[in-house]
């Protein structure tokens, strides 16, 4: 028996020695493989930025930069086309503003409820439902906006056209409620319990603790969640394409059709603008504008949550 176990150990050592080359090879190779994977994500960013820059450059060889920034007309299909981005930005910001009017109060109130009032059991029940709301595909929200919210609003506002800014704005707001609620709740849950207990001991009501102690302490995280939500609303595509219409305008009338940057890109792609035409390149210029808008928002959110965070 002793002999046999010695035998198997020496066999193991032998096997191990013969595998050593292989092990060493894998040991050297794997970090490189994983580094390559990690580099793909960098390449993706580089690809996005370069694509947008090059094709936007092609666009600006045919259209003046000044016209793009200052003109207030966006008529790419006109006989005498005009490319001023302002109407698309107006449409985009209008939708985002309506969305935030819905998402900020409701999202924040939900966050306060979940973090300060709800029992563990309630929280465990409500949070997954909010996650479901966040997981519904945007095309489904678009369908909902066009076939339910718009007719509903038409009963209240008689002059509302089928395609308008109000209905997709509200639905985009509904879509981002879970995002505001869950990010704000995270920020509020991070406030130490001792601060709440201190305030309770001084005779504060639950509402006063929530609004005068927890809210200010979590403010940086809450504001960051608002900014991220705006960024999300600006980049939203399908809801505004389905229910917002395709009428680039600088008018602030929420009851008539508008066009956002994202909806314009979809419109051109679905149409038959040939490769290499000015119209084709225009989607990259609009995409670049959109990318800059969301990037700035994301960076602001990052700075707010890092710089102004209170550390306890």
């Amino acid at each position: 028996m002793n002999n046999r176990s010695n035998h198997s150990i020496s066999k193991m050592i032998e096997e191990k020695a013969s595998n050593r080359g292989m092990t060493k090879f894998a040991e050297g190779l794997m970090p490189k493989v994983f580094l390559t994977c990690a580099l793909i994500s960098i390449l993706t960013t580089v690809g996005i930025v370069l694509t947008l820059i090059f094709e936007t450059f092609s666009f600006f060889q045919e259209v003046q930069v000044a016209e793009f920034i200052t003109s207030s007309d966006w008529y790419p299909l006109h006989g005498d086309p005009s490319y001023g981005i302002r109407p698309l930005i107006t449409g985009t910001l209008m939708i985002a503003a309506i969305a935030m009017l819905i998402a900020i109060p409701i999202g924040l109130a939900s966050a306060i409820f979940l973090s300060e009032y709800a029992s563990d059991k309630t929280r465990r029940m409500v949070k997954p439902i909010l996650e479901v709301l966040a997981g519904i595909p945007t095309i489904v929200y678009g369908f909902f906006a066009l076939t339910f919210v718009t007719p509903l609003l038409q009963n209240i506002i008689p002059g509302l056209s089928i395609y308008n800014a109000l209905s997709p704005g509200i639905v985009v707001g509904i879509m981002i409620i879970p995002m505001v609620a869950s990010l704000s709740e995270d920020a509020m849950s991070a406030v130490p319990q001792s601060m709440r207990e201190g305030a309770f001991a001084l005779g504060s009501t639950r509402f006063e603790v929530a609004v005068k102690v927890v809210l200010p302490a979590a403010l940086s995280g809450i504001i960051a969640s608002f900014v991220l939500a705006v960024s999300r609303a600006i980049g939203e595509t399908m809801i505004v394409t389905v229910a917002g219409g395709s009428n680039p305008t600088t008018s602030m009338d929420v009851t008539s059709a508008v066009q956002t940057m994202t909806a314009y890109i979809v419109q051109v792609t679905l149409g038959d603008a040939g490769y290499g035409t000015t119209e084709y390149y225009s989607i990259y210029a609009v995409g670049m504008t959109l990318f800059i808008f969301t990037l700035v928002m994301n960076v602001i959110a990052h700075i707010i949550s890092k710089r102004f965070r209170e550390v306890y």
């Binding site: 960013t45 991220l228 995409g287 969301t294 990037l295």
Partner: peptide
């Protein structure tokens, strides 16, 4: 790399479409 990944998460999906 880490920052790049969190930034990519915030890029609108339609921009990925352009890519």
């Amino acid at each position: 790399i880490q920052m790049n990944i969190s930034n990519l998460a915030g890029v609108p999906s339609i921009v990925f479409g352009l890519l």
